[in-house]
Amino acid sequence: MSSLWKKIWMYALLILGAVISIYPLIYMLMTALKPMTLLFEFPPKFLPSEMTFNNFRDAWVSQNFAQYLFNSIMVTLVSFAFIFLFSSMLAFAYSRFEFRGKKLSFAILMGGLVIPSLTLLIPQFILIRQLGMFDSRWGLIVVYAAGAIPFTTFLLKGFFDSISRDIDESVEMEGGNAWTLFASIIIPLSKPAFVPATIFNALTVWEEFPWALTIINDPAKRTLPIALANFQGQYTTQWGIVFAGSLIAILPIILLFLLLQRYFIAGITAGAIKG
């Protein structure tokens, strides 16, 4: 009987946690479906008595929203390409090779995980301006990729370490080299590790606001967080449009997670298990 009550409590807590987690999204959707005249009705109603999709239409056609969406997609994809390339090679080197200064260099790299990103805003601004990347998408991509490399390297190295070294010997006996091992064996076997890295990095780049606001002046090069901020006026804010735009903005991340969710937990835990 005690086992039954434990299961009941467990499922009750899981359901409660799910409701708490999903409630903000449902509230955003209900607000986005309300006409402007019903946003501040009293007493407030969770379910709108009258629904409209005008807020989604207005969000899409105003503030150059489609261009901002394209910019966010491009910046996220290119950033992740650089993150994947450099982090995977770094993780492979730290996992499979012994060289002078290995522990020290890895400790320095991991030190990047404990530095708050906002404290780097000014030196990053000076560096990007000196590199001629001010007010360009490359100024976003370079900083986003550099900021994500330490965490991604740490995650991938843990997974690479769990792959048996017997595979290395087999590749060597077949006449392969380090590149063969990396490109043909390690990377294909490590697909589960790239799933959490993809989700975390995509979410970080997608929602980043301070650096995008600092480095980009040209409205045609801005990303989605800037578009959402522009929906909020100094004196009045059309909350229906704000929530509609927010839902459009988070839809790609939700779809990405739904597509990769079955690999997510496996990828998170795999690196902690040694082969």
Results as ranks from 00 to 15, higher is better:
S162I: 07
E169W: 07
F151S: 12
I149H: 02
I163K: 00
I141Y: 05
G158K: 00
Y144W: 02
T152P: 00
A145S: 14
T153A: 03
A146Q: 05
V142W: 08
V142K: 03
P150R: 02
P150E: 12
L140Y: 04
F160M: 13
L156E: 05
I167K: 03
K157I: 06
A148T: 12
S164G: 11
P150S: 08
A148H: 13
K157F: 08
A145F: 07
S162H: 04
I141H: 03
V142L: 14
F154S: 11
Y144H: 14
F151D: 10
A148P: 11
K157V: 09
V142R: 02
L140G: 05
D161F: 08
V171L: 05
T153P: 08
S164F: 06
L155M: 15
A148W: 08
S162V: 08
R165N: 11
A146Y: 02
G158I: 01
S162W: 05
S170W: 09
E172Y: 15
I149E: 06
L155G: 11
T152K: 00
P150A: 07
L155V: 13
A148Q: 15
G158A: 01
I149C: 04
D168Q: 01
E169G: 03
G147M: 14
D166F: 02
K157C: 08
F151Y: 14
D161A: 07
V142A: 13
S162C: 09
A145P: 09
G158T: 02
F154E: 13
A148V: 12
I163Q: 00
L155E: 10
A145G: 09
A145N: 08
Y144D: 10
D166W: 02
T152G: 00
T152L: 10
A148Y: 10
R165S: 12
F160I: 04
A146L: 13
T152Q: 09
F160T: 03
I163G: 01
I141A: 05
I141N: 04
T152C: 04
S170H: 13
Y144L: 06
L140E: 05
F154M: 15
A145I: 12
S170C: 14
L156W: 04
D161Y: 09
F160Q: 04
A146C: 11
L140H: 03
V143M: 12
T152N: 07
S164Q: 07
V142Y: 05
F160S: 05
I167V: 12
S164A: 12
L156M: 10
E169C: 01
L156S: 03
T153H: 02
D161V: 08
I149V: 14
L156I: 06
E169N: 14
